[in-house]
Each structure stands twice: as C-alpha cells, then as structure tokens.
Computed example of a mutant assay.
Amino acid sequence: MPSTTQPAAVDRRTFLKGLTAVGGGILATACAGHAAGPSASGAAASRASLAAWRDRIGLQLFTVRDRFMTDYPGTLRAVAAAGYREVQTTLSYGGYSLDQIKQFLDQAGLVAPATHVSPPNGPEFERTLDAYARIGHRYTTVNTGSERGPRGVPNAAPQRQTLDAVKRTAAALNEAGRVTQKHGLKVIVHNHTVEFEPLADGSQRPYDVLMAETDPSLVALELDIGWATVAGANALELFRRAPGRFEVWHVKDVAGLASLAGKSEAERQRAAKIVPLGEGEIDYRAIFAQAGLAGMKHFFVEQDSAPDSGDSLAAAAASYRNLRDRVLA
C-alpha cells in the first residue's frame, strides 16, 4: 500500500516526550453547583446541556485493541451497534489503507474526528495529513521524540524533565501545528500521570509549561480526565485555568482513588483500577456540565483495562449505557 495512506504504527502513549499532563490539584474531582443549590430553571438548563452530548458519544479504540487489530471492520460495526457515533483511532490502521478505513467507518455509520496514530516524520508527514483530512480526522498526535521502554511503552520511571526540555517540546508542538493547520488538522497533546511531577529544576510541572508555551490556535489539550485525576489533578480547576483549550477529552473512570495517596505518579498509574465509566469515583456529570468552559468538541470513552475483562466490547457497551443513561441524562 502507498505510504501516504498507511502511516507507520505508533503507540499513542509515546507520541510526546514524556510530557502532557496537568498541573497539580486534588485527588478527587470537584463538585459543580452553588452552595445554595441550582434553581429549577437552572437545573433544567443543565440537564438539557448534558443531554446535548448523548448523540456524540465516542470511543477510543484502545479500549478494544484486542479486537480491531485482527478485525477492523467488524470491530467498528460492533462499536456502532453498542451506540457509539464517534471513534478515535490508535496504534495503527490494522494494515488497511486510509481509504479503506474511511469505507469501514462509513459502512458502520461512524466518524473519526481524531487520531492517535501520529503521522510519520519526514517526507510522508504532509502527505499523511492530506490522507487524514480526507477520511475526516481533524485532530492528530505528533511525534516529538520520547523516552521509551519495551515495545515503545514509556519507561516506568522516566527521568524528570527540565524546564528547557519542556519548552523545546512545546516549540516542536507549535512547529508541527503550523504544518498540520495547513492541512485542516490541529495537534493534540495527551497526558498520563508522570507529567504531574515537578520539573527536575523547579516547582512547575510539565503541563503548566505546556499550557503556557503552546499556541492555542495550533495545539489543543487532549485531557485524559482519568489519568489526570489519578495524578491528583482537578479537571474543573484546569478548565478555569485555561478555558477553551481542552478541545478533546478521554473519559475513563477509576475506583479506589483513596488507595493511591502517598504513591509516586508512576506508582499511581500502575496501581490505578480502571473500570467501565460510571462504575468508578469520578464525577463526570459535574465535569460535562463545564464542557463549554473547557471548549470541548469531542470526547472518547477509554478503558485501558477492557481487554483484560474478557470482553472488551461488553465493557465498552457498559460505559456507553452508563454515560448515556446516568451521566448525560
């Protein structure tokens, strides 16, 4: 297949130089609303605002990675049958051309506005962006280098970044964003937990620097709310600090947050109990109520642990039902 329509497989968890998280906060998400409680009309407006997202629920395909690598079209059909309307591609396109992927998406009634398959650096970069635009991608991760362990997974205990290193990463993201913008795409920056640790040479955290140093017109923050919460951050506080910048969300739920207290960021990530959305402790109803402040345009359910459950599609379906019937009701 032509390389312009089949970029190399890139682990979505390693596209960034170990950086993309959120600056400090509290281990639990904040509650929405005023102390006196919302008025009846305000509550009705809030419900209507939440319900507006019910037909836009997306799935990060990392959730069903045990299936799509061997049956891409069948997995997309099953995801659509579960109720999802959007997906975010990841890892690779299963050996198919992007034109074929577009056909599979159309047949399933899905759209894929964002991808975590970073376009290859070098001469194929812009040709791949053109192909991405043709199939409907509007956001993409990019490669800026990273600290990698076995199979491309970030090292469990990477060295803390310096301020200068983070600024260089931000500059690389801006530069990539100037190129992707010409092709109708915007760079997105994803977080895990390690990015919440202080820099090696200061009290700032990598995400604080990235928020300050990246150009909002070129780089959007793709907030993984689950990992941010595990790291001790508060999504609502982040929205207030940088309104409008969180255009893409990963929504994952976590149980047993209290047990993570006192652990390092890397230990928290390893110990986090990721569960279907609605079965954990993150108050997503309060978070979705602030989607406008965040600037959110697309969100994707992600359960990293779903393949280990024995039926990743069933786990994805449970998340969809809980999100539709409880969070966004």
Rank of each mutant, 00 (worst) to 15 (best):
P2N: 14
T4K: 11
P7G: 03
V10I: 14
K17T: 05
A21R: 12
A21Y: 13
G23F: 10
C31L: 13
G33W: 13
W53P: 07
R56K: 15
G58A: 03
F62L: 14
T63R: 13
M69H: 15
V79R: 04
A80W: 11
Y93P: 00
Y93S: 00
S97F: 06
F104W: 11
Q107R: 10
A108R: 07
P113Q: 07
S118T: 13
P119I: 12
P120Q: 08
N121V: 07
G122S: 02
R127C: 01
R127D: 12
R127K: 12
T128M: 05
A131R: 07
H137P: 00
H137K: 06
R138I: 04
Y139D: 10
T140F: 06
T144A: 07
G145W: 03
G152T: 08
N155G: 10
A157M: 09
A172Q: 11
N174P: 14
Q181V: 09
H183Y: 08
I188Q: 05
I188F: 05
H190S: 09
G202E: 01
S203D: 10
Y207Q: 06
D208C: 00
V209A: 01
L210V: 06
M211A: 09
M211S: 04
A212M: 08
E213S: 04
V219M: 04
A220M: 05
E222F: 13
I225F: 01
W227G: 00
A231I: 01
A235C: 04
L236S: 06
E237H: 09
L238R: 06
G244E: 07
V248N: 05
H250C: 15
V251G: 05
D253A: 10
A255M: 09
A255E: 08
A261L: 12
S264H: 07
E267D: 14
K273R: 11
P276E: 14
D283S: 04
A286T: 10
I287F: 07
K297N: 00
K297H: 12
H298P: 00
F299V: 01
E302A: 10
Q303R: 12
P307R: 07
D308Q: 14
A316W: 08
L323Q: 01
R324N: 00
L328R: 06
